[in-house]
């Protein structure tokens, strides 16, 4: 591994100050993505080489799951995925989120991987992760996936860069209308997770709205209203331990089998977690049955523009949306 300096931060303000002073610094949380990134020795404007790692695990009181029926759920940024997945409060009130926190990687990685790290992880595109490919994110002027191996790339909203967002918890949290507490030089602010991720159209070099000296400190999920249900389904090539080919998170208010309100969010299909607003609009006020669920999936994928090797994802996404929506009616 390349050499770097190490700094154990003592507070969020301390970490922000260190980041502001060091353009080539990066923050380490669980490290399961970042250390792989450093070992791959990637470099470029969207993939800077870190010469200083600022450890935020050393900041006190950053790992917690707090729930109350009125205020909802608060997740400390450094909470390991396993803690989120096994929390009785999360399992009872947000089953979709619990399932999404249990699905990334292996047990050993979920023990160290943090919830904020799962949202902040970089895409797994093999051209981005390959040192020898000067793609857009690494300062080049080409997407190698367009003419290359693109079976796991974007079918929706690809432009310049055809990555897919790799997070499982991001779709689940967005479906639940979660928000992020972002700390920076000017103090703390709340950003809806729905607006947190940005695609290549906005900035090809990064995947979130965070600036270099801003940090994701806490995630808040609103209290579940009456008759709210949530679910998460993920399709992978292997049974264990794989990134999503397609994942879908749904959360909705279901009354008497009718979809009153809710969200449908896809993972693994677009450069950001993809809010399927077409499905949400189509479902509103509808009785949930095979026809309305299938219609929601079909309408969402009307906009799909698959690449040479990934049209199979279109059918998977349609079916997953239908299956997830139907599961809420029977849950």
């Amino acid at each position: 591994m390349r050499s770097f300096k190490y700094y154990a931060a003592t507070s969020w303000e301390d970490a922000v100050a260190m980041l502001s002073k060091n353009a080539a610094a990066q923050v380490i949380a669980g490290g399961s993505d970042l250390l792989g990134w450093i070992k791959d020795d990637l470099n470029g404007p969207g993939a800077p080489r870190a010469d200083l790692l600022i450890d935020i695990r050393t900041i006190p009181n950053t790992s917690y799951v707090k729930f109350d029926a009125a205020g909802g759920l608060k997740l400390g940024a450094l909470t390991p995925l396993v803690t989120v997945a096994e929390s009785a409060d999360v399992l009872k009130n947000y089953p979709g989120l619990a399932k999404s926190a249990l699905s990334p990687a292996s047990p050993a990685i979920r023990n160290v991987g943090s919830i904020a790290g799962n949202l902040m992880q970089r895409p797994r595109c093999w051209y981005l992760r390959g040192k020898d490919f000067a793609c857009y994110k690494k300062g080049g002027d080409f997407c190698f996936a367009v003419t290359g191996e693109n079976q796991y790339h974007a079918i929706l909203e690809g432009e310049l860069c055809y990555i897919v967002h790799p997070s499982d918890t991001a779709p689940a949290l967005i479906a639940l209308n979660a928000s992020a507490k972002v700390v920076g030089p000017g103090g703390a602010k709340d950003v809806a997770l729905d607006k947190f991720f940005i695609g290549p159209r906005t900035n090809v070099l990064k995947e979130t709205v965070l600036e270099h000296n801003e940090l994701l400190a806490e995630i808040s999920v609103p209290a579940p209203a009456a008759n709210w249900k949530s679910a998460f389904i993920k399709v992978t090539q292997r049974d264990v331990y794989d990134f999503a080919v397609v994942s879908v998170a749904v959360a909705g208010q279901i009354e008497g089998g009718v979809w009153k309100d809710g969200r449908v969010v896809l993972g693994g299909v677009a450069p950001t977690p993809y809010r399927a607003t077409a499905a949400e609009d189509a479902l509103k006020g509808q009785k949930i049955d095979e026809k309305s669920a299938r219609n929601a999936g079909d309408l969402t994928l009307v906009k799909a523009r698959p690449m040479s090797q990934n049209a199979y994802k279109v059918d998977i996404a349609k079916n997953l949306i239908a299956r997830a929506v139907l599961s809420l009616a029977s849950a």
Binding site: S32, S106, N111, V112
Partner: peptide, 9 residues
């Protein structure tokens, strides 16, 4: 708890 020590500093 089990962890992959190649990714732990």
């Amino acid at each position: 708890k089990p962890v992959t020590s190649c990714l732990v500093l």
